[in-house]
């Protein structure tokens, strides 16, 4: 079996349970003072890398967690290491420079291509989308830039020799593809349960020994200047607004009431 050097890109985002608010100037969503967490799809990526190691043993040589973000993204990378990543690389962004705020997927993909080359990775496992920007592009862009095969929205990942067999979520069901390594895989929700199952019985990464161990694992820090990549923004944000609020229409007290109200509304 091909030995694997896995890169897991991670994004620090507003926690999925928080309702985001648009700022007063309508230029962005407010992030200061808001609870931030690892993008949920990225948790799946880390967990899957760790499970690949558990299933395939020594074949997984290295699990590198990567993030490009503010200094605090270091916390997110520590979590990734507590979950089982071997080491971490943080590209610390300068939030005072407009071109470094919210890197666009194309820029992130270009950055990741350099990381893959420098670190000699042959597999990238990343989330299918980040829950802030919801673009769902980075993995596919990276695969294109590297000329690697890709398997998106993975529900099952199996390494067989020099190939990876992936069951993908597609519209209307699932599809199985066989991708030659090196490859990019993007994770979908059904892939695994980083939170343990049932939820109460096991939390792989939250155990104290794991957190202590993660503190000793190496984390390298770099800046964008360490990479020869063009980070010009291609999209200008004109405005960010909250969607028009929907007003609840009140309650009825019986099935008959429900049917007659739906008829009034022309829905049935």
């Amino acid at each position: 079996m091909t030995s694997l050097r896995i890169l897991v890109p991670i994004k620090r985002v507003i926690d999925y349970a928080i309702k985001p608010r648009v700022n007063a100037t309508k230029t962005a969503v407010m992030t200061s003072g808001v609870k931030m967490s690892m993008n949920p799809f990225d948790e799946l990526s880390i967990e899957e890398s760790v499970r690949l190691r558990e299933r395939n043993g020594d074949a997984v040589q290295d699990i590198l967690a990567f993030s490009a973000g503010p200094a605090k993204a270091a916390d997110t990378l520590r979590t990734a290491m507590a979950m089982g990543a071997d080491r971490a690389l943080l590209v610390e962004l300068d939030e005072k420079r407009p071109e470094e705020i919210d890197l666009e997927p194309l820029a992130v993909a270009k950055l990741l291509r350099e990381v893959v080359r420098q670190e000699g990775c042959n597999m990238v496992i990343c989330g299918k989308q980040s829950i802030d920007d919801d673009s769902g592009q980075t993995g596919q862009m990276l695969a294109g830039l590297l000329g690697w095969g890709q398997a998106t929205q993975a529900a099952k990942v199996e390494v067989q020799g020099s190939e990876v067999v992936v069951t993908k979520e597609v519209d209307g069901g699932e599809e199985v593809v066989r991708v030659k390594l090196p490859a990019v895989v993007t994770t979908d929700l059904r892939l695994n349960e980083p939170w343990g199952f049932p939820i109460s019985c096991q939390r792989r990464y939250a155990t104290l020994p794991n957190i202590m161990k993660a503190k000793k694992k190496p984390m390298e820090k770099k800046t964008l200047a360490d990479f020869n990549v063009e980070f010009r923004k291609r999209l200008e944000t004109v405005e960010v607004v909250e969607p028009p609020p929907r007003q609840g229409g009140g309650k009825v007290d019986s099935v008959d009431g429900l049917i007659s109200r739906l008829k009034e509304l022309g829905a049935i």
Binding site: P105, L106, S135, G136, M141, A143, R234
Partner: peptide, 23 residues
């Protein structure tokens, strides 16, 4: 922005050096 579009268009965008607009 279907499973097909999500899979293929970002790859084409990167090859053309274009920042795609999704969904």
């Amino acid at each position: 922005h279907s499973a097909f579009g999500k899979n293929i268009l970002p790859r084409a965008s990167a090859l053309l050096d274009v920042q795609q607009i999704s969904d």
